[in-house]
Nucleic acid binder design. Structure first.
Length: 457
RNA sequence: GAGGGUAUAGCUCAGUUGGUUAGAGCACCAGAUUGUGGUUCUGGAAGUCGAGGGUUCAACUCCCUCUACUCUCCCCA
């Protein structure tokens, strides 16, 4: 008999229970971080109408979209009219446009769902991946100071996750565009130059200089020197912002960008965000053209090579494809699947977690009903409790307990039963105590508190 | 879409200039006498050597094709 090899599509993350528990922990921490700032949850379907999803996306994105089609439609040779979302921003735009009348603005929402891209998988890149987004959508206008709240939310989350040192790099596209304008680069060429500038941290200054001098741009060396000199601005966020006003650049775009950046840094300071968690990187532009102002990228300081784990920016008009209303917004997105992959690589995932707190074993089959009653009691006390149901040899029950990682095992044999006692075994320490049955729950609680204090210390 | 690399047990990998029955570690299952796991010892199960073709007395080994996986570039979380 032949069996089908139990494979999964490449580029998906599928976890074993112990890891999944750790993943849920990260997921919950992120969600709590969003809720702490009062963001409202929404979900949208994984499948969107093709006509909605692919309104004006460039060729690059469209090539990566998974289409969805019934077999009936396929057999008739029809083009798919459904597709899987490739991010959460486009569905958000559709959602806001659709529900505009029923939403309160500024609309601050979080959304934690999977997205899909038919990409060639690579280290830390997936075809199915979780995105955890927050966005603030305004009606007609949205104060630039919201551009500080969004990274403040993210920084709080990353600090709570204890993932090591990280830096949110921020910038304002208008600053860069104003610079390019001031050195006389054509309106048409500026977005293309921006994309090259954005890669300077990866490719280096020389490469950028050569590219800008090359056939695609043919910029004079004096211009390139000015750009490179500007990109060398470095320091704390406050220092960079101060330096911007001394560059001798004076055009509307630049000044607007600089003022906004100042407002953002001022708000971050007022929010008392740790200044070592963010910096202004004047080279950051982001590839996506719909960003118009503030842009963000987040890297783990020790693993910049793995790419950004959280990024986003400000867009002037989110839903112009779906409504005539002007809806500006700002948002950031955590790539949770990539982040979790990183945490595993760095051995920062606590895989000791178990799905249950207590396992009630089966010492004497005659007492089975009592074991179930005891388990019910433990659950009522808020303890996640599992009963051994199979009539296994006791040794096998203990092996099972060890394999699932449950921290406590309850043992009641004939002797304990007759004395109205129970034995509690601590699987981590290895010791065990026999106590009055009524003392079981307090005893477990005492030990959990003690273990918690050990971890915190 | 362009260019490299790899393919042997569930996992990570050995396998000599082609030669007889393809191995190890981990994992798994079972034992080491009464109600105790994670350490140790013993035993067991497990492979169409990615698929197809060619060379040869003989192919896991050499050649060709295909497939899958993987890395880099592009792009992004």
């Amino acid at each position: 008999m032949s069996v089908v090899k139990p494979r999964v599509m490449q580029g998906v993350m599928e976890l074993l229970p112990r890891q999944q528990i750790a993943f849920q922990g990260v997921f919950d921490t992120i969600r709590r971080g969003f809720e702490r700032f009062g963001y409202a949850p929404i979900e949208t379907p994984a499948v969107e109408l093709t006509s909605v999803l692919l309104t004006k996306t460039g060729g690059e994105t469209e090539k990566q979209v998974y289409f969805v089609q019934s077999t009936g439609a396929r057999d008739q040779g029809k083009d798919p009219d459904l597709a899987l979302r490739f991010d959460l921003t486009v569905p958000l735009a559709r959602y806001v446009a659709k529900n505009e009348a029923n939403l309160t603005f500024p609309f601050r929402r979080y959304q934690m769902q999977r997205s899909y891209r038919g990409e060639r998988p690579q280290r830390g890149r997936y075809r199915e991946f979780y995105q955890c987004d927050i966005d603030v959508i305004g009606k007609e206008s949205l104060d630039p100071r919201y551009d500080a709240e969004v990274p403040a939310v993210m920084i709080g989350i990353f600090e709570e996750l204890e993932i090591g040192d990280f830096t949110v790099q921020l910038n304002n596209r208008k600053v860069l565009l104003g610079l390019l304008e001031s050195v006389g680069i054509d309106d048409e060429a500026r977005p293309r130059v921006l994309r090259e500038v954005d890669k300077i941290d990866k490719r280096g200054r020389e490469y950028l200089a050569e590219t800008l001098a090359g056939d695609d741009f043919v910029l004079p060396s004096a211009t390139i020197d000015k750009v490179l000199a500007f990109l060398a601005i470095d320091g704390s966020a406050r220092e960079v912002v101060d330096a911007l006003s001394q560059q001798g650049i004076d055009n509307e775009t630049f000044n607007e960008g600089r003022t906004q950046l100042e407002a953002v840094i001022g708000s971050l300071e007022a929010l008392q965000v740790n200044p070592s968690r963010y910096r202004v990187n004047v080279a950051i532009a982001r590839g996506l053209d719909y960003y118009t102002g503030t842009v963000y990228e987040t890297f783990l300081d020790d693993h910049k090579d793995l790419g950004s784990i959280c990024s986003g920016g400000r867009y002037e008009n989110l839903a112009s494809n779906y409504t005539k209303s002007k809806l500006p917004g700002v948002g950031m997105s955590i790539g949770l699947t990539r982040l979790f992959y990183l945490l595993q690589e760095l051995d920062l995932v606590d895989s000791t977690a178990s799905a249950a707190d207590v396992l009630v074993t089966q010492q004497d089959p005659e007492l089975y009903a009592e074991y179930l009653a005891l388990a019910t009691e433990l659950r009522a006390a808020g303890l996640r409790t599992e009963s051994v149901v199979e009539p296994w040899k006791f040794k096998k029950q203990m092996k099972y307990a060890n394999a699932t990682g449950v921290p406590f095992v309850v043992i009641v044999g004939a002797s304990e039963h007759d004395a109205n006692q129970v034995t509690l075994k601590d699987m981590v320490g290895g010791d065990q105590v026999t106590v009055a049955r009524s003392e079981l729950i307090p005893e477990i609680e005492r030990r959990r508190v003690a273990a918690q204090n050990r971890d915190d210390a």
